[in-house]
Each structure stands twice: as structure tokens, then as C-alpha cells.
Write a protein that binds this DNA or RNA. Structure first.
Lengths: 123, 123
DNA sequence: TAACTTTGGTTACCAAAAGTAAGTAAAAAA
DNA sequence: TTTTTTACTTACTTTTGGTAACCAAAGTTA
């Protein structure tokens, strides 16, 4: 008999791993976090210029999600034309070292991985 | 004048960050890697029993991707009914410490993040 | 006075990725 | 002969992501 209790990953809502993967596992969050770390406080369009391949829509969606999770702080200056600045919160900063671990692994292994992929395709 | 050279993330194909995020940032890869680390060698259905919320299709797709990247080794025993075993490769094992960094951060911050999300919703 | 610029978005529409449920192969057991 | 077992695949639906056009509101230009 297989009860839910035998599956330690059954409660997807409360599984921290799935929770974090669902959030930073999207297409853009990690890139935005890394850019904000490197460049400091940035306006919407400045982020967009740094990550040209993201659409305005996805940048807006990504920033809103990061803000909702308290990883990024959004500051609106009531001007016309509008001015909105984004910066990492402490919580966002505390995540970054772990991302850097991943990034360094990725940098060190990317070439071998790309080779593996090509070999796998032909077979 | 904005040339491609001003955007250090413009070559999405060759950006290691995007590369690794695209691969382990999918919904299931990290979970599968963690299960294989914890349980050792497992058959297809054994993984499926451990991660009940994944569909057979997505488990198959995920394993194939991990195999293509050389993170997981697939061994087929020519029997009927079939027997296929999956285990981490060295490359896969070398990635896991970095994932654990993320996991521990996720465990430590999940509650605060969930609170932030609820607060963000109402405002 | 009308049109254009600037910024930080939103909206409608389309494509790609992921989820669901059912089907498949092949042999051994009932 | 039907059922069982295992590791998938296939057809279909839903969710996510991408593209391009549009918007507000004040200042600048003509």
C-alpha cells in the first residue's frame, strides 16, 4: 500500500526544493538576480539593455515574482516619465553565493556537457 | 550605438549560466538528481514511486536529458519485462554539492518567502 | 496647437513546453 | 486466452513564454 507518507516529495506546495526550483527555475530569474548583483541598483530599461534577449513582458513578470518573494526591492519615483529602480534585498543577496556555486560549476563543465550532447544526438 | 558586444549575455547558446539554468532549471531535473544521490541506482519505476507527482512522460524526458548531458548513466538489461537502471555519473555527482547549497538556502528561507508572497498578493 | 519623445509597463495574440491519460511491446504466469 | 509487468511513446489539453502593438502623462519640438 502506497500512502502519501511514503513519498517525501508528495506535498509539492511545501517541498522547499520544488518551491525554489519553481521560482528560480524559470527562464530569467537567475539572470536578473546576477545582473542586479553585478550592476547594483538598476532601472527597468537598464536591466532590459543588459539582458537584451528578454522581452519587456517577461522582464516585468520576472521582476514582479522576485519582488513578491522579497528577493528584489522595487522603488517608484513619482515622475513623468516614470522612474522605477530595482535592487537586491538582503534575502536576494543571501541567495547569490549559492547561485555562484552553480555558475562556476556550469562554466567549468559546459564544454564537456556540450560534447556529451552532440555525442548523444548521433547515437 | 548598441552592438551585440555590449551585451555580455547576448549569446544565449554559449552563456554557461543560461545553459545550466535551461537544463537543471526545468521542473524535475534537480529532484531526480537528488533522488538518485540519496537512493543510489534506481529503476525507472522506482524513481517514479519516489517522485509520485512526476508523469511517466516527463520522467522519461528528464532522464533522457540528464543522460544526454552525461549527468546520469542509463543501463539496459535485455530482459522481458524490461529492466533499466539509472545512476549518477561522476559529473552528476560533482554538481550535487552546489545543488545542496541551493536546497539548504531554500529550506532556510521558504517560510519567509511564502509569507512575503501572501503579503504581496493582498497589496 | 498638434505631434513626438520618454519610461515602465499592459494587452491580445501566437508558439512552445509541460501535464494527462491511454496505448504499446514482448514474454511469462494464471 | 487473458492478465501482468516494465519502460516507455503517442495524442490531446493546459500552462508558460515570446512578439508586437498599445497606453498614460508631461515635456519638448514645430
Amino acid at each position: 500500500m502506497e500512502t502519501k507518507k511514503n513519498d517525501k516529495f508528495s506535498n509539492v506546495e511545501d517541498c522547499p526544493i520544488r518551491n525554489i526550483i519553481d521560482r528560480i527555475g524559470d527562464k530569467w530569474s537567475v539572470l536578473v538576480l546576477l545582473v542586479l548583483e553585478e550592476e547594483g541598483t538598476l532601472r527597468f530599461n537598464e536591466i532590459h539593455k543588459t539582458i537584451q534577449s528578454i522581452s519587456q513582458k517577461m522582464l516585468a513578470v520576472t521582476l514582479k515574482a522576485l519582488e513578491a518573494d522579497g528577493l528584489v526591492k522595487r522603488t517608484v519615483y513619482p515622475q513623468i516619465p516614470p522612474k522605477v529602480e530595482y535592487e537586491l534585498t538582503e534575502r536576494g543577496s543571501s541567495l547569490l553565493p549559492h547561485l555562484h556555486g552553480l555558475v562556476s560549476w556550469a562554466v567549468g563543465n559546459m564544454e564537456a556537457i556540450q560534447t556529451s550532447r552532440r555525442e548523444f544526438e548521433v547515437s
